[in-house]
Design a protein around this nucleic acid. Structure first.
Lengths: 312, 312
DNA sequence: ATCCGCCAATACCAACAGAGTATCATCAGA
DNA sequence: TCTGATGATACTCTGTTGGTATTGGCGGAT
């Protein structure tokens, strides 16, 4: 059965509309119902009624009605002030929200593996910023495990991972592919030799690998590369992330296999060398939750697409 | 003929109502259309529709609708913030205006003749303040001519005049009546004598009179008093206002007739003496424009009425 | 003094927005 | 696979709002 509406009528305040405030402002500025109505592109009688309703709603006289000349009361003057502010606020709120909704503003939280900072990522970010300068970009570095957790818990919007994260709930797009090279301690015997280094010869070396999780990890990838060459590194040291691994190499703990772009940024104590043998390379992949419909995310993927198409 | 409404539809933005914001806040806080509808004491379908309309109006998605759990989008989160502020502002604006409309706040501009400051006016003002502590009282001293001009030009709300202002456009109320006394230079021969002073004996004295305008002025009043005693002062000096007149007396220019309450505040060089003879006294009268419907004014008159009734 | 004109208020009507009920579609969890 | 929960859709109806016609009252002009 239909609910009783009359009951509700008793409770609630009157309707309380923006329209009324706009009307009021028009009348207050014109001090003339006829002209105000014309400005509002409406007839005068409904305008008079709306003002009367507003006065009843607030419970205060807003205009002094002398026939020849209407004047604002003090209450009306104050309301005029406040109403202007409120409508301005409302308008700017709407604009702001609309802009965020279009992806033109707001926040985009991007996280990436440390080894991405030397390659294409910086220029990709620059490209996005130039397209959407008002978006507040939050950037942070994480290993693959943290990236995955961040995406799932919605702590980040975009993850740039190496290698690709697995999961149906993620949308993914390849960003960049590059060969692997060796990172050697500069006092290593291998570093000195002028001959090309053969991967198969390194089966007795200590490999610094990172990180172990989540599977498949970059470490798994490297081990598979060695396997393809017919050996498993005799000594394996595991680091949490790429930064730590390079530090270990620089102090002579062992060698590491890293993406080529890493060699763009020299580091004391570390020499980068290419090698002969199995080199499937390594890929940076960009991920986001499929259900993340944030326009900023969609636009970020658009930028990636443009970007990669340009480079190929 | 009826104007074409369809045309107007095309132009203006959508309706833009407070209701929608309230609905939005409810849904944003509950994150559940059903519960929000219950809280708003309405059915769920119209609520869904209103939110959809709001989203169309703004042009941005406000909620992520996953079937099981709806979430605010970033745009929605910002709107929630803004909408709360706006509705708060609106509410406090309404309250403020209502209070002013009731006369509980706002401004009351009172002006008075200088000679009123010694008598009942201060305690009347105190009484008003205690009843309406949030009204901003603006007090100033003027002569009768300025009082009249101030009222007519709406620069002041209340005028306390002596004698009464004339004019149909003014509402008037007697505030206080008191006898006249003489203000004499302290080196005057009259000041020394121990016998009662007879007004009729003063026909050769210099009278300091104030002000000349507007007619009938306080000066006219004094001259009529003398006339009633059968003489016109031989020497007449005119001052702009009461303060100046007393100053002239204090430096020995002549004598003045003043309201008795003036003697409440002694002044160097001036002696106050009562006299024998015609003494119709003098009245303070309160005036306001009849068309000044400011509640503060009406309440001020109420206070006067209570006040004078108490004293009689 | 009287009339005319201007302007806000009132009366009444038509149309639309919004709230209600019934129902559907879809997804999660048993 | 079925069931329950939840938001969307379809549609009906009422109240609000805007429109036109008219009134009422004050000020200025004849």
């Amino acid at each position: 059965m239909r609910k009783n509406r009359v009951m509700k009528k008793g409770l609630g305040r009157a309707t309380l509309e923006f329209k009324r405030l706009k009307y009021f402002i028009a009348v207050a500025e014109e001090l003339h119902f006829g002209r105000a109505a014309a400005r509002l592109e409406m007839a005068q009688p409904p305008l008079s009624r709306q003002i009367a309703t507003l006065e009843k709603e607030i419970g205060a006289q807003l205009f002094d009605r002398a026939r020849s000349q209407i004047r604002l009361t003090e209450a009306g003057a104050v309301l005029l002030d406040r109403a202007r502010d409120i409508l301005d606020d409302l308008d700017s709120a709407y604009r702001e929200v609309e802009l965020i909704g279009r992806g033109g503003a707001g926040r985009l939280r991007v996280a990436f593996v440390g080894s991405a900072t030397h390659g294409v990522l910086p220029s990709l970010i620059k490209s996005y910023r130039s397209h959407y300068p008002h978006v507040d970009l939050s950037l942070s570095s994480m290993n693959n495990a943290e990236l995955e957790r961040g995406l799932i818990q919605r702590d980040i919007d975009i993850a740039v991972a190496r290698p690709s994260l697995q999961g149906d709930e993620f949308r993914s797009m390849a960003l960049h592919h590059e060969p692997l090279i060796l990172a050697l301690p500069d006092n290593s015997a291998l570093a000195g030799q002028s001959l090309p280094i053969k991967l198969a010869d390194l089966d007795k070396e200590t490999f610094v690998l990172y990180p172990r999780r989540p599977r498949p990890s970059f470490a798994d990838h490297i081990l598979k590369v060695c396997e393809g060459e017919g050996f498993t590194p005799a000594d394996q040291i595991f680091a949490q992330d790429y930064q730590t691994a390079i530090s270990l190499v620089s102090v002579g703990v062992g060698l590491a296999m890293v993406p080529k772009s890493v060699s763009n940024s020299p580091r004391a104590g570390v020499l980068y060398r290419s090698y002969e043998g199995n080199n499937p390379g390594t890929s940076l992949t960009v991920h986001a939750r499929r259900d993340n419909r944030k326009p900023q995310v969609l636009q970020f993927f658009d930028i990636i697409e443009k970007y990669t198409r340009k480079r190929t």
